[in-house]
Design a protein around this nucleic acid. Structure first.
Lengths: 347, 347
DNA sequence: CTGTTAGCGCATTCAG
DNA sequence: CTGAATGCGCTAACAG
């Protein structure tokens, strides 16, 4: 059996309470006593039984996810994953809730953050909007001693505890590199469809894409970025226009969430020869990939992200370290040939 | 607070012991009583606190991983991941051990399996060799009521409880598809380097690769498979030969673990124009990818696989269901642009 | 067949 | 500053 608090109490010649005090380093222990206990801990190779500790604390962790509202399928997928995780959350002493706010709206996000602080949550995960008032709100969260993680879109330098999401610069670079290799020597410019430059993930993807494209052996023009606000209608119009006006268009990189509009324009346009790379695997992009309308889908697994955010928030709340390796969110590259089974991703 | 066994005992008008009996459905409860208790459980929406249950049981789960021995870097990586998981295993009441056996050797594997049964383990994870005596051994494991999962290479139809690893047919298909697209119109045959057809993963990858290659718009010859037994020396010799004898070679698909030999032959050969696709991200393949000697690395994350195997084995041992979505091992596609950070994968 | 009781390993009162 | 006692939610003897 591995050593328990009793063993170390016996070995150090003190009581359980004292052991507990040095374990959780709480005040009220003389330095000598503390040293004795620490020696015993080291000697026995004690490791705390987290499950038992949580049981004794009978503490619950109310965590809140703040997500953009609207019909963005990826965000709705994230929300679904939070609810799914909520089913199992009972076992982990975690209470999950979701708040939605208008997309790309810093003020609304700030309101939700302040409400969460007031509500006394144990941790917050939010899709960050790049605005100074948001950074200020995050500072208030820190001051309240509440862990905060950014989700999907980061806000480095804001003081957030952790970022849960892919490396978006690398994602853009990957898109650019695949685009270049798939097109090979074929001539023609490529178009880029984004949502808004007010979220950092879109900006970072663009940056990586441009860098990779310009590093390709054969030079290729990249047309000015089209901003569709992640709205299907606007995206459709922008792409339809582009297809009509640029007859020698060779490829499209869609780095935001306007994919429904893009796909509609593509199937109407009848240009099966384009190389199309998009982000996020949804029912729509999956179907388009299978049909050959899309060549590559770059994806971040919403389920992994939600579970990772929960683990990190809990670890921070308990003052525990996070396992960086386990919490790294990978960029999935899907082509028609390695598409995972179910249409609902998981079951 | 969520309901506890006390609540349901009170509501059903029985004692804790009786509640526990129906919860773990043990004998010794009249049908009527059982029904009353079940009604209370349903009414209160009770969910058992697994942590508390395990604490009370103070049961430990000795799990054994049976891996091929030798200097196969991927297998050594797996072993390292098991040891790493072992550090945290204390907290999860799990005791991990590793047994190594000669590669591609069915009899040795059978010996290790029978030893594990005799040793009274709570679960077994093994890299399967495709041989009838192995299936027979797995049947004995089942009979002993011990959960068994195949790792990396499956043995469907053997009665194993679960397979932890990637879909190898899809992996081969992905390799073929990328090979075709990257080569485009460039002429020349491609070579395939394998370890041995006695493990099913190699066979499946080949199958998928050939299917994808033959589905490409432009036909391309695939040379007869080179079997290097996952040995660096033999692999080196085979590839060096091939490079010398096939001057118009366009690409190489290495679906086994002979990558060190392959890489040596490639850097000696000075043929920077080949499209090279290999499996498993190791220090060697990572360096070769960065240098441009290799174009694509298909990978299965050893850390994920080990953690998944542990979760599944524990769930089976407790008679709990497994979350198929969470346990699906994804095929990672790495190109130079989306290579994750550290050289040691995690930290 | 059913109930009582005593822990599992730890945190937390409340006394001393 | 330190210790003894109680309970978290559940399981497992042991009685009845």
């Amino acid at each position: 059996m591995r050593p328990t608090v009793h063993d170390i109490a016996a070995k150090a010649g003190v009581s359980l309470a004292t052991v507990d005090r040095v374990l959780n380093d709480r005040p009220g222990v003389r330095a000598v006593t503390r040293a004795k206990v620490e020696a015993a801990i080291a000697a026995l190779g004690y490791v705390r039984d987290v499950a038992a500790a949580n049981l004794a604390k009978s503490r619950v962790y109310p965590l809140v996810f703040i997500l953009p509202e609207g019909d963005n399928p990826f965000m709705r997928g994230l929300e679904a994953e939070v609810r799914r995780a909520g089913l199992h959350s009972a076992a982990e002493r975690t209470r999950l809730s979701v708040t939605t706010v208008p997309a790309f709206d810093g003020a609304a996000l700030v309101g939700a953050i302040d409400a969460a602080i007031a509500g006394g949550v144990a941790g917050i995960a939010a899709v960050a909007v790049d605005a100074p008032e948001v950074s200020a709100a995050i500072a208030r969260v820190q001051e309240a001693g509440i862990p905060f993680v950014t989700l999907v879109s980061d806000l480095a330098g804001s003081g957030r505890d952790h970022f849960v999401g892919v490396d978006n610069i690398a994602a853009g670079r990957t898109a650019g590199s695949l685009m270049g290799r798939f097109l090979g020597a074929r001539p023609g410019p490529v178009a880029v469809l984004a949502g808004s430059m007010r979220v950092r993930d879109h900006g970072e993807r663009l940056e990586g894409f441009l860098a990779a494209m310009s590093a390709m052996p054969q030079a290729r023009a990249v047309l000015p970025v089209l901003e569709g606000q992640d709205d299907p209608g606007r995206s459709h119009a922008l792409i339809a226009d582009c297809l009509a006006n640029v007859p020698d268009l060779a490829g499209i990189y869609s780095l935001g969430a306007g994919n429904r509009g893009l796909i509609e324009a593509l199937s109407a346009g009848g240009r099966g020869d384009l190389c199309v790379i998009v982000h996020e695997l949804t029912a729509e992009t999956r179907a388009a990939l299978q049909e050959g309308l899309i060549d590559v889908v770059l994806n971040q697994d919403a389920g992994h992200e939600v579970r990772s955010a929960i683990r990190v928030l809990r670890a921070k709340a308990d003052g525990l370290p996070v396992n960086a390796g386990q919490e790294r969110i990978r960029l999935d590259i899907f082509i028609k040939d390695n598409l995972p089974a179910g249409p609902d991703e998981e079951n």
